[in-house]
Simulated assay, not measured.
Amino acid sequence: MKDCKVNELRGMWIATVFGIDWPKTQNNPEAQKKEFIEILDTLQSLNFNAVFVQIRPTSDAFYNSHINPWSVYLTGTQGKSPGYDPLKFMIKETHKRNMEFHAWLNPYRITTNGTDLNQLAKLNPARLNPNWALEYDDALFYNPENQEVIKYVATTVFEIVKNYYVDGIHFDDYFYPYNYPLPEGEDKDGEVANNRREAVNDMIRLVYKAIKSTRACVQFGVSPFGVWKNKSSDHKGSDSNNLESYYNVYTDSLAWIEEGIIDYIAPQIYWTIDNKNSSYETLVKWWIEAVKDTCVDLYIGQNISNEDIAREIEKEIQINRKYSEVEGSIFFSMINLEENTGNVVQQFERVYRNKAGIPYEGCD
Rank of each mutant, 00 (worst) to 15 (best):
E8G: 11
A139N: 10
I300Q: 10
L298E: 06
W271R: 14
E30N: 13
M99D: 10
D202T: 09
P224M: 10
E30S: 14
T77K: 15
W13D: 01
E145R: 15
L120G: 07
N340P: 04
V344E: 07
K24R: 13
F18S: 06
M334C: 01
E289M: 08
V153G: 11
T115A: 05
L182M: 09
L283G: 02
K212M: 03
I300V: 15
E198W: 03
V227W: 06
N131M: 04
Q54V: 02
A154F: 02
L128S: 05
S59F: 03
K80N: 06
T294Y: 05
Q44Y: 14
N131T: 11
L298Y: 07
A154G: 07
S253E: 12
I273S: 08
Q54L: 02
S238H: 02
A255V: 02
Y299G: 09
E314W: 05
Y84L: 05
M1S: 14
D189W: 07
K276Q: 15
Q32I: 06
S71R: 09
K92V: 00
V291S: 04
P57T: 01
S278E: 12
C363G: 12
T112K: 10
M99Y: 09
H66M: 03
I273C: 04
S253C: 08
P359Q: 12
S279V: 00
N49H: 06
L243W: 14
W70R: 10
D297A: 13
T155F: 08
Q32R: 04
L283V: 05
E145Q: 15
L40R: 11
W70F: 09
S238G: 13
M99W: 08
Y208N: 14
Y323K: 06
S238E: 13
F62L: 09
N131V: 02
T156L: 01
P177T: 12
W104I: 00
S240F: 03
N277Y: 11
H66C: 04
W22M: 02
S81M: 06
L254V: 00
M90R: 05
E349A: 13
V284E: 11
N336E: 14
I313T: 11
T282R: 11
A61T: 00
F158T: 13
E159G: 12
S71I: 01
I39G: 04
Y280R: 07
P144F: 05
E100H: 13
